[in-house]
Every structure is written in structure tokens, then in C-alpha cells.
Amino acid sequence: MLRYITQRVLYMILTLLIIATITFFLMKLLPGSPFNNQDKLTETQRYALNEKYGLNDPVPVQYINYITKLAQGDLGYTFQFDGRTVNSLIVNGMGPSATVGFEALLFGTIVGLLLGIMAALKHNTFLDYGAMVIAVFGIAIPSFVFAGLLQYYVGVKLQWLPVAFWNGPEYHILPAFSLSVGVIATVARFMRTEMLEILGTDYILMARSKGVSKSAVIFKHCVRNSLIPIVTILGPMAIGLITGSLVIENIFAIPGIGEQFVKAIQVNDYPVIMGTTLFFSFLIVAIILIVDILYGIIDPRIRVAGGKS
């Protein structure tokens, strides 16, 4: 198992290096430079700034310098605020982003699982159809549409919750809920399909033939086996939440990484673009690894096949 994880971590580092390289050169293809569009700067000032941030060097040299620093965990300085490191921007932005994402994932998974289980147990009844109609809406309608509707009705009209900003727990509810709608819908649909399939398997019949009560059959035999595909989709979904939160953070004016990222692209803030891209990539690769490990915990068949401990 340890060997397996070490191997996976090495692959992770390689993946991140490739992502860093590709992003670096793509970014250099962006039109403009960080200090071009500020009319107030004179030629000399611009030259001095470019010199300060090493932008006058040839691109390959800039690349080597960047990678060398990256290897030491240094993502450089942002061009927007004097003397602030990208590391500190990410650390500051991380808090709100991770909080919203995690809340959405947790709430969405729990509600989605309950809806899916209910739909499967009440198969072909009003409850089943109702849950699935909700799920289709949740998948079809993007989170920012919900965000806008919620802001208008719950925030402006009813004034129950704040419309935007990030000043306390009540500010979390609307963004986290908007993000979780997609999660609820996806999880519910997967759970329902999987539960229905497993309810029809021989081992469920076998469990019932042992005299195990219906609720025990559902929770001990059916739900656990149905969770296997849920764990698989949870990874991509968590990734979706990270990227989806770019938009949601903008709509709700949450000072998260997503907001930083969008701003950085608008003003050609190279180190921040690089830093946030790499940070997102790191999260994604890490989530995939975690899902693979979780998968093994839930499904004993994979545990044995995956790593010989």
C-alpha cells in the first residue's frame, strides 16, 4: 500500500510539472503584458518594473527561473499589490473557497443520497418521479442561475439572507446551496439507479431469505454497495465544485481563489495565474488519489487488487 501511494505521489508531481510547463507557455501567448495597459507609466518606469519582475529575460530563462523557484515552493510575487506573495494570496483565498466548496459537497451528498434512496425504495411512485424531476432540473440548470434567483428572491425580496459578501456563517448559505444543487441532482440520480440495480441482485434476496429485516437489508447490504459508484463520481464532482466556484465566488463577491484567478487573467498577473492554476491542478490530482484510496476502503475487491501491502 505504501509503495502504491509513493508511486502515485511521484506521478502527481510529474503531472503538475507538465501542467506548469504548458500553462507557462500558454500564458506567454496571451496578448499584452502586465504593465502595458497602464497609461500612466512612462517607458522608463515600465522597463524598471519589467526588470524587477524578470520579464525582460528571454522566455526560456524565465521558465527555468520559475520552475526552480516552484521546486522550492515559492510561487513568486503578484504584480497587482506591491510585495505580496502569491502563496499568501492563495492561503488567504483558500479559506472561503474551501469552506463554500466543502459545505456544498457535504450538504449536496447527504441530501442527494437521501433523495436517491427514497426514490429507489418508492420506485415508480409519486415520490420517485418527484425526486427525479428535481434531479433533472438540478443537472440541467447551471448553478449561477440558481445563485441569481436565490439572491433576488431570498436576498432582495424576502431579505432573509445577505445577498453577497463574506462576513459570517449566514453569508455561506446562499452560495453553498447554489453550488450544491448540481451535487444533489447527480448524487440522487446515481444513487437511485444503483440502489434499484442492487435491490434486484441475488445477494439481497439471499439476505432476505436469512430473515434479515427489510431496513437492515437496505442499510447493511444495499446502501453500502450502492456507495461504490458514488465515491467514484464524488471526485470529479469535488473538482466541479472547485471550478464552479469561480463563477459563484464572483456572483456572491466572496474573496476566494476563484475571484483572484479571474482578476489575475484580466490584468495579466502572470504569477497569480500560474499559482492558482497549479493550486487547482494540485487539488484535482490530490482528490483523484483520495478517491482511489477511498474506493479501496469501501470495496474489498479493489483493496486486494490495488495494493499488495
Binding site: D202, G211, P300
Partner: peptide, 28 residues
């Protein structure tokens, strides 16, 4: 009733199924 049957299944009358590859719960 279902409750009465739960007491009989497994204890008084039990069953063996056709396909042993699918009649055991893979995660237990």
C-alpha cells in the same frame, strides 16, 4: 405478515440460490 415471515425465513425455512457468484454480498 412480513414480520412473521422474518421469524420463519432462515430459522425454519431457508434457501440456497442458483448462482453462488452473485448470491453473496461482495462487501461483507
Amino acid at each position: 405478515s412480513e414480520r412473521e415471515m422474518e421469524k420463519i425465513r432462515g430459522a425454519e425455512i431457508s434457501m440456497i440460490f442458483q448462482d453462488p457468484m452473485t448470491s453473496l454480498n461482495p462487501t461483507m
